[in-house]
Design a protein around this nucleic acid. Structure first.
Lengths: 231, 231
DNA sequence: GAGTGGTCTAGACCACCCT
DNA sequence: GGGTGGTCTAGACCACTCG
């Protein structure tokens, strides 16, 4: 891991350990270069990183200050790591409903930016948080990028597997949100009436080399769907 | 405006003008330094900027590539410029429902991180897009930051006024999303039944010096609320 | 005016991709 | 192995904030 990243992790850990409140002033840049024995530019990269993560903010001519997340229990829409990472404890569980393969039809090919007929993996899962159903997920993975996947992997964290076993890193992602009336199948999965509404989030994940490898349709239970964005 | 920003704007404009498709390879870094007669680090800052905007992606050892937004008509949840900026044409209109002042109660004081009793401006507006109601907005501005606001300003773009007249820049923001059943007042404003659902987005905007100046509750019509996030 | 962050340079070396 | 992006350095100067 590069220096600027290590230092960012260390500073973030310190803020959390000391539980510093919003607005706490941190050391200035010159002190940070001395503390970590690196050049000013490296510290600047560290601070940009922490700013992007929503951990600090910088004010020209004044200083570097702590920024704290205000509300607990909200899922971040920015971090690109699938489901498991949004929860600090192990209270996130997934139940596999279906695992299989299929060929991309026109719609899937367009979303995954691959030719019609490309072989895909198909995964359907229900996600629970503290025993509550909160999301029905319907995902497709391009087999030309994700060379192998099976049922037992799909029962755990797919993104962790992609990262550690296949060395596929998420480069970037597109997410589309809207509100829909659930189909009877989805209403059934989420324990809803057909007259209720669900929050639908479609996601396309791209590897760090820019290939789309995952297209997911996620339907969130209206009572347990809470999201936040820091920017 | 700094060089790296000017160059970023110029490159983005070129991509849009030439309508370059996703995946188009751009000049490499060395060529860019020569084209714009700046150092490598300046180009690197430019590219980071464009990456954050979702305009390009970089692949180590390979090159710099165009990234295009896929769907039209979706509102970005990342850009921090209030309502008007989300629409390319002038089809966004706001109708002012209420303008006034009040003192912060406990809830508002907590959201705006100010003492109870701080004087606030209160604004209620309905937002239209292509003649359709899509959002009911209920906002509060801290008068200690926003020193002046009146009815006729609230009828146009408040953020544009804050920026140009008061020189208040948005430094960062927190946004919280969830689904709710509308109160009868809100159902009424949005032309909905009480059994429908709305997407509620609470937003807190901070100036570039880190002071919270705007707390808004926005209720989106379920049929016209479409959002996207690139990250 | 002293302190602090923001921009910019020039150059060295490393890590990864592709042919 | 040649090309390309990623990291890091050391130092100069600018722009803003605050007492």
């Amino acid at each position: 891991m590069p220096k600027y990243m290590q230092i960012a992790d260390e500073i973030e850990r310190q803020i959390q350990t000391l539980n510093l409140p919003q607005g706490t002033k941190l050391s200035n840049i010159q002190e940070l270069t001395q503390t970590y024995q690196v050049s000013k530019n490296t510290i600047l990269k560290t601070l940009k990183q922490l700013e992007d993560r929503g951990v600090i903010y910088q004010v020209q001519g004044s200083g570097i200050f702590v920024r704290r997340k205000k509300r607990k229990g909200y899922i971040s829409l920015i971090q690109n790591q699938g489901f498991s990472s949004d929860f600090e404890d192990d209270s996130e569980k997934a139940r596999l409903l279906n695992f299989g393969t299929l060929s991309a039809n026109e719609h899937l090919a367009s979303q995954l930016q691959c030719p019609v007929g490309t072989p895909l993996y198909e995964v359907e899962r229900l996600h629970f948080f503290r025993g509550q159903i909160y999301c029905y997920e319907h995902s497709y993975f391009n087999q030309e990028v994700v060379s192998f996947l099976n049922q037992s992997i799909a029962e755990t964290s797919i993104f962790e597997y992609l990262n550690q076993a296949l060395h596929i890193q998420v480069g970037f992602s597109d997410k589309y949100l809207n509100i829909q009336s659930p189909s009877s199948e989805i209403a059934n999965h989420l324990n809803l009436k057909k007259t209720d509404s669900v929050l639908k989030i479609e996601e396309v994940y791209y590897s760090s080399s820019g290939k789309a490898f995952d297209y997911s349709k996620n339907y969130y239970h209206p009572d347990h769907a809470q999201f936040f964005i820091q920017s």
